[in-house]
Design a protein around this nucleic acid. Structure first.
Length: 735
DNA sequence: ATGGTGCATGAGGCA
DNA sequence: GCCTCATGCACCATC
């Protein structure tokens, strides 16, 4: 960025480029992000002063629109013309002269001294303006980046927005301000076609796309909000369309822009599973939105997490009777405890106190709740004293839960049927967009069998992986804390265990020395499931990551294995847990043949390796013993940047193909039996079950004892489908 | 031995 | 630092 302090000045009009040390004749142009002003030569400066800069220099560029009032041409998205136009709330632009008379409903893009400050916000459009502000900030930031970062994620972009936005929005997290992806997806796509050509004319196309997407994302917020009408009709006095603003904020009767952190619930953070479901349902007509809570005692304290996310269609189904009105009260994602056999459904305190009858004794009172089929259930609504507080539960819910075939991760909704005031209980199954469990029937801890693929099942069945989250996250290099689930790709693991056995498994089978702090191991995945719930995308990512992790497992260095032969398979048994080797990438060339590439830890150059090469955690060119011409960092790079790009793309394809092949039936995947073995052994206690041949094989390991735990790691894949892949058995038996 | 009950604990969220 | 809530677990009842 040029600075006015430079003695040698260049005109900042890119199409001019006059450069001189002459101190005279320079004019001040538009405001820069630095707070300075653009330096323009006399000629360009004059054009700017006369507000014809873009007409003169950008007339052939894209990004021109017309003032909705006087049809004057306006160059949108151009820094030189920012001060000449205003974005209208309803879309379109006005020139500043017209917008002066137009009054409210428009937002000046540049009325702050530096041109990038807070936009002027009118009284009617706080939300829209705020969003627009975010959009502008995002756009600004992207322009500031000035280079093309293909593939920048929305999350990153929004983080930029969050970081860059002034005022109270600075602290807002993306999740807090955005509705679930699915909810906005349709809006995004519909908006995408309407993308204004005003965006970012100076940016490269990729940036333009990203900015446009971000813009549309934010514009979609308003539309999404507008669909949330039910709450308003049900007595909610939320003045915001759709009432998605945290009512605690509203109670302060001031703008969210002035509320600072209070505005964090501007939009509710949805349960992750709901998000996942919505993502799939994003294109269908039924948009699931978080409805603001209906009236009730203390509803102001209701966390958005519990706001009912019930569709109009579902409401209609529940209601049945056209004379009745269904008032959605709250919902809760079932935890493992809730869905377990104890038959206690923990109620969010605020919800219980807001919508259920007041109780003063721990014994509580029986509560009649009707389910969607019209069947009436009687639960004991009670509480336990807990840390000077109360913990509310519904007791005796097991029959109801079972009749609905609900599992952990599914959602129960509570509504009230007016005018009778009858409580109605609905439910929503957690769905998975990927066939995570095209499985054999598995016995859930609560004894409920479901033939459907539910995420909850993943959690219920694979409780031991909680300890992996940190590891896998670090592998993934993600700061996203959503825990992602691990599963058996082959899906042939059965878990016919009692809870106690399962508990034992949970404790015993975590990779103790490798991954999990002692304390963590005592808790299972089911715990805090509400906080660990994930959307299917996360799980999918983790699935990839887990497979990658498998590929990266190496025997601990300098540890000599003992060889054990079981049924003609050689097992290398190590006394130390495995370590993770260096990550490499694999590709398949269109002409055939696989390649492995790895990046030097020292010079970052990519080197081609034999496909079966296993790299230690740290690897440099010096270790490239396979290619003497490139065994030094001084050796030239084998790949041009474009080739590298192609390489990465091929690797992506390779991974995709690998993923899909891992979902093939067992017989089509030669090593799947061993995969299953590894998965089974890692995921479960293999000692007491012989659900699969693979597990049975492991049971025969001489060191294995019923009830003990072991970890089996498949030798990193032999790419030709080598069936003789042997196993590394990490002996972690206690005694 | 199994199952139910009531409370304690502590992770995580939030102010 | 407080609050919520998921879950562990001790204790007791029952089979």
């Amino acid at each position: 960025m040029a600075s006015s302090s430079l003695s040698m000045k260049s005109c900042m009009n890119a199409t001019c480029g006059v450069s001189t040390s002459n101190s005279g004749g320079w004019k001040k142009g538009w405001a820069l992000r630095s707070g300075d002003f653009a330096i323009l030569c006399d000629n360009c400066g004059s054009a700017y002063e006369q507000s014809v800069f873009c007409e003169v220099f950008h007339s052939k560029d894209s990004g021109w629109r017309e003032c909705t009032s006087c049809s004057k041409r306006l160059h949108c998205g151009c820094i030189a013309s920012r001060s000449l136009l205003e974005l209208l709330d309803g879309g379109g632009v006005n020139c500043t002269s017209c917008s002066g008379s137009a009054g409210a409903g428009s937002m000046n893009v540049d009325k702050t001294p530096n041109g990038f400050g807070k936009p002027k916000v009118d009284n009617n459009g706080e939300l829209q303006s705020a969003s627009a502000n975010g959009h502008l900030a995002a756009e600004t930031k992207l322009m500031q980046l000035g280079n093309c970062i293909d593939g920048i994620g929305t999350r990153s972009l929004l983080q930029l927005q969050s970081d860059e936005t002034n005022g109270s929005y600075r602290k807002m997290k993306q999740e807090d301000i955005l509705p679930p992806v699915g909810e906005i997806a349709s809006t995004i796509f519909s908006n995408f076609n309407q993308a204004s050509n005003a965006s970012c004319q100076t940016a490269k196309p990729e940036i333009h796309r990203t900015v446009t997407a971000a813009k549309d994302l934010y514009e979609s917020l308003a539309q999404t909000n507008l669909s949330m009408s039910l709450g308003s009709t049900l007595g909610n006095q939320n003045p915001f369309p759709g009432g998605v603003v945290d009512e605690r904020v509203l109670s302060k009767a001031s703008s969210p822009l002035q509320q600072g952190p209070r505005s964090r619930h501007l939009l509710p953070k949805p349960p992750k599973l709901a998000l996942s479901m919505d993502a799939n349902a994003g294109m269908v007509s039924q948009i699931r939105v978080a409805r603001p809570p209906a009236e009730g005692r203390g509803r102001n304290q209701l966390l958005p997490r519990y706001w009912p996310r019930i569709t109009d269609q579902e409401l209609q189904q529940i209601s049945g009777d056209p004379n009745s009105t269904i008032v959605p009260l709250f919902e809760k994602v079932l935890s493992a405890s809730d869905a377990g056999r104890i038959g206690r459904l923990v109620l969010p305190k605020a919800c219980a106190e807001a919508y259920f009858p007041p109780i003063s004794q721990p014994e509580g009172l029986p509560l009649r709740i009707q389910d969607v089929k019209g069947k009436e259930w009687v639960f004991q609504f009670r509480f336990w004293p807990n840390n000077n507080s109360r913990m509310y539960v519904l007791e005796g819910v097991t029959p109801c839960i079972q009749s609905m075939k609900l599992q952990a991760g599914d959602t129960v909704t509570f509504s009230r049927m007016d005018p009778e005031g009858k409580l109605v209980m609905g439910f929503r199954k957690a769905s998975s967009s990927i066939a995570m469990q095209d499985t054999q029937p598995s016995a859930m801890p609560n004894g409920v069998h479901s033939s459907e693929s539910y995420f909850s099942g993943v959690f219920e069945n694979l409780p031991i992986i909680s300890g992996y989250s940190g590891l896998l996250q670090s592998l993934k290099g993600s700061t996203d804390t959503h825990f992602s689930a691990l599963h058996s790709a082959s899906g042939d693991i059965s878990w016919h265990k009692s809870d106690k056995q399962e508990d034992k498994t949970r404790d015993g089978l975590l990779l103790p020395s490798l991954l999990v702090p002692e304390r963590k191991r005592t808790r299972n995945i089911g715990s805090k499931s509400k906080r660990l719930l994930i959307d299917s995308l996360d799980a999918f990512e983790l699935k990839l990551t887990w497979e990658e992790a498998q590929d990266l497992l190496r025997p601990a260095p300098s540890v000599k294995p003992s060889i054990v032969t079981i049924e003609d398979h050689d097992f290398e048994e190590y006394e130390e847990p495995p370590v993770f080797g260096k990550r490499s990438i694999f590709i398949v060339r269109s002409i055939g043949g696989q390649e492995q590439w790895a990046q030097c830890d020292s010079c970052s150059k990519w080197r081609r390796l034999p496909v079966d090469a296993l790299l230690p955690p740290k690897w440099t060119c010096v270790d490239n013993t396979w290619d003497q011409s490139r065994c030094s960092c001084s050796a030239p790079d084998e790949l041009a940047p474009r080739e590298l790009e192609n390489l990465l793309r091929l690797n992506k394809d390779f991974k995709k193909r690998k993923m899909s092949s891992s979902h093939q039936p067992t017989q089509e995947h030669e090593s799947s039996g061993l995969d299953a073995l590894a998965n089974a052994a890692i995921l479960g206690d293999v000692g007491e079950q012989s659900a699969t041949a693979a597990v049975a094989t492991t049971t025969k390991h001489p060191r294995h004892r019923p009830g003990c735990s072991c970890i089996v790691c498949i030798q990193p894949p032999k790419w030709e489908g080598e069936a003789q892949a042997y196993l590394h058995v990490q002996r972690l038996h206690d005694s």
